[in-house]
Design a protein around this nucleic acid. Structure first.
Lengths: 194, 194
DNA sequence: AATAAATTATACCAAATGGTATAATTTTAA
DNA sequence: TTAAAATTATACCATTTGGTATAATTTATT
């Protein structure tokens, strides 16, 4: 790994929580230099512009989340247990395992959908990938005979994601974890009925 | 209504769609003067600062939404029909009836939850109000014998809101209305099981 | 119609924004 | 170890940001 590759990665890691809390527009170059200890020269020698940092950071935040979730999923044997990981894990989404600032997909989707085409596109792709990963798991569970034959994988994937994102949004803005618990319990009940 | 009250209202109405698409930080004073045709003097003679406009605009966007939804609900007789209004209405959330830029509660919650205490508070109150209105409807339906005795109104309210907000977020960022249809159908099915 | 009061326009401000040219410094390879 | 290449710091830039003091103009009241 060359020096510039290491610095690039360093910048991404140091600014990831900032972008995910302040938003991609709300994060200033000043925030970036402060968080990294580098000067503008150091930043712009490694990235063309702020957009490029924002996109790299988004992809980092999303990948990190996927890797963490997949590592938990892979511990489970049945597909129902794999799906049941999600309500279980997201009960602790305020903890260290999860990106600071909430779900990067939702944050970016909401901020960029009407204003920032490039970011919108990466958020879209990430979301489609996430939907697909649920569809894959549910299909496997169907082939397996674990899940009912009549359930529609995409429909169920969308419900799972909506309940998770809804839980994050509602819990973060109200500060009440009872809403998180309620929604993750509902999700659990729902998955048990697959 | 005094001149200043009319101007205040005029500023709110003209900038409401801007705040709801660009975000409350992302909307500049320049955007506001352009949209209203007023100068800074005209704006600051009626509002103390940008925050005050943002909050007034949020409350306007939210009230408008509530009024529209309530006017549809009041047309229905049974409480199940009243709840079924939501999946029906939100199928057309991209139309004129709904605020431009998506759901003001979600937009504001996501933007402000880690950065802007005042806006976070108004978004929180709006959300709690919305939850309560669902709880009220579900309780009425229970008293009525329309809904099962064992369902928990708050749990169900949270599911309804999550599916709606999830649908908006997913549909706006992917541009695929099939996701909207899928989620609103799921919500319909869910309400029919109350 | 005259005057006091409220409202809006003009002209300004300091600070912050994203970005760049260039000079200084490190890395890297020979 | 030295020279070439890559990286980072410094100093700058034009533009935009939110906000204000004051002057001009409307409104409202008598």
């Amino acid at each position: 790994m060359s020096k510039s590759e290491r610095t690039r990665q360093y910048i991404i890691e140091k600014t990831a929580p900032i972008f995910n809390t302040k938003g991609y527009e709300g994060t200033s170059l000043n925030d970036i230099t402060q968080a990294t200890g580098l000067t503008k020269g150091g930043i712009y020698g490694n990235f063309k512009n702020k957009d490029e940092i924002a996109i790299a950071v988004f992809e980092y935040n999303f990948e990190r989340l996927l890797i963490m979730l997949n590592s938990e999923i892979s511990k489970k044997k049945t597909y129902r247990e794999k799906l049941l990981c999600f309500p279980e894990l997201y009960l602790g989404f305020l903890g260290e395992k999860f990106p600071v600032g909430g779900c990067p997909i939702m944050n970016t989707a909401i901020e960029a959908d009407d204003t920032h085409d490039k970011l919108k596109k990466v958020a879209k792709n990430a979301l489609l990938k996430w939907i697909d990963s649920f569809v894959y798991l549910i299909n496997k569970g169907k082939e397996n005979g674990e899940f009912k034959a009549e359930i529609n994988p995409e429909d169920k994937a969308l419900i799972i994601i909506s309940l998770i994102e809804g839980a994050i949004m509602i819990t973060k803005v109200t500060g009440k974890t009872k809403y998180l618990k309620s929604l993750m319990t509902s999700l659990k009940v729902h998955i048990k009925d697959f």
